[in-house]
Design a protein around this nucleic acid. Sequence first.
DNA 1: CGAGGAATAGAACATCCATTCCACAATTCC
DNA 2: GGAATTGTGGAATGGATGTTCTATTCCTCG
Lengths: 287, 287
Amino acid sequence: MAETENSIAIPQDFDGLKAMILERKTQLPKRLRQVAAYALDHPDEIAFGTAASIATSADVQPSTLVRFAQHFGFEGFSSLQQIFRARLRERTPGYDERLKALSGNDHSKLESGSIFNGFVAAAHRSLDNIATSVEPEAFERAVNILAGAETIYLVAKRRSYPISGYMAYAFGKLKVRYQMVGTAAGIDDDILAMAGPKDAAFAVSFSPYASESVNQAKLLATRKVPVVSLTDSAFSPLAESSKVWFELVEADHAGFRSLSASMAFAMALTVAVAEKRRRITEERVIE
Amino acid sequence: MAETENSIAIPQDFDGLKAMILERKTQLPKRLRQVAAYALDHPDEIAFGTAASIATSADVQPSTLVRFAQHFGFEGFSSLQQIFRARLRERTPGYDERLKALSGNDHSKLESGSIFNGFVAAAHRSLDNIATSVEPEAFERAVNILAGAETIYLVAKRRSYPISGYMAYAFGKLKVRYQMVGTAAGIDDDILAMAGPKDAAFAVSFSPYASESVNQAKLLATRKVPVVSLTDSAFSPLAESSKVWFELVEADHAGFRSLSASMAFAMALTVAVAEKRRRITEERVIE
DNA sequence: CGAGGAATAGAACATCCATTCCACAATTCC
DNA sequence: GGAATTGTGGAATGGATGTTCTATTCCTCG
């Protein structure tokens, strides 16, 4: 038997496959057309089912599925199935278009360009996730806790440090009293000793969790200081010390995780807290 | 062996399962907790993978996966896997609807929600701009300059400080020698006095330009230190001191400019420099 | 109408899978 | 500190899976 298709490219994504199926469906033999119709009508079934179960549903033989896949250039049914699974994986809206737009620009021609593109794409993906992963109610509670605090303690190390660095800058501008923890070594405990129930803390730590940050958050929690935290897993040791915590998974490129979503989150939180404070103060003045 | 759980209901959907896992995670044995963390962090992997492949990824034995499933009342791993698959099934349709849902999501109903949405949107806009505004050739030149330097001096103040803060962290991880300028007051001049033509500097400053940063960049330029800079206007005083400079306009929300694009840029630059260095070193070794 | 070739069904096969089982290690509880 | 219990790793196993092969059926065209 001659190779059915090796001159024309094998579809790499679902859209490409769909287009190819539609293009050829009239020339397809009876059973294969039957499979084609079923595949486009029940893509989820193809993604999750086994060849046997799909064959039963589509009322064909398992071998027909294999032949179908091979007709479109795949090695077997399994490799065709990957296309259907990938479709479910990449559910983020607008993501595909963005990626295509990126890879189409002239950055990719140069050596360092793909690195640049990669990080921009990772940042986009992170931001796409953040809107769904952060619950508005939790955000509101976090804002209330921090807005009610006399002093806000900022806990972050290493990779998370830039985030608290920004918040420190912004809080300063907005005239919100804050205290950074962990800038100079040794005096952290003294600083934390001043914190009390009237204050609040914001801690950031991503895996691998800096043990210092975790311990400081724990210490604050035992001192009845309400802690709001930002982390990347429900299993983060930070979560247990926190009154409110946010799970925020940053996309990565080449193993370097983005900070864009965390940054956006930090900005929003900072400004929302300042805004809330302003309102509280005004109400007090009126009364 | 006694039935682990038949008094309490078996989770029927992903949210229920997630809640139960979080509830019990502290009591879970070591390996099972490992699986729990992996499962919640990589739900897609669980949905599509085989027990063997997942076990390898999560660094446990396949049998551990089965025991994990049974601990939560499932008959075996396969039935637990159904939960993860159902989760993907349910949230497939409607790319367009999803996009709309995002912009009109329930964040906006709450007080602080619009602030949150605003910052995420601003970050997206910034990133959309960055790909067009940064010229690949310039980026390549910047990478070459910094990769050739003995020590990289990082100059940034105030709002830009988090950017150099991240770069310092990443350079440290990547074993690239760097020196931050402007951390402790007073000794900056001494630090800068050590810089020479063999080194290079990366300066970040957005309007209103911190006069310190501008002056330090000037000083470095007169000492023949090549300067790469990131700023937001062609008229920036930084530009004249720089060998290569990038104009990067961040979108803003409520007057607070995003940092997401700058951050992505900084990450890309950092990694690209490290990558280039690695290559240079390898070539030297070969010769 | 009947030969030739493609398409198909169904069985056979080799592979891979989830699960079970058991010996050993770790932990807990007297 | 020893006994009992629980947790863990790794091999064994029975079953199911995707694929291949071949006999048969179904078209098509002379």
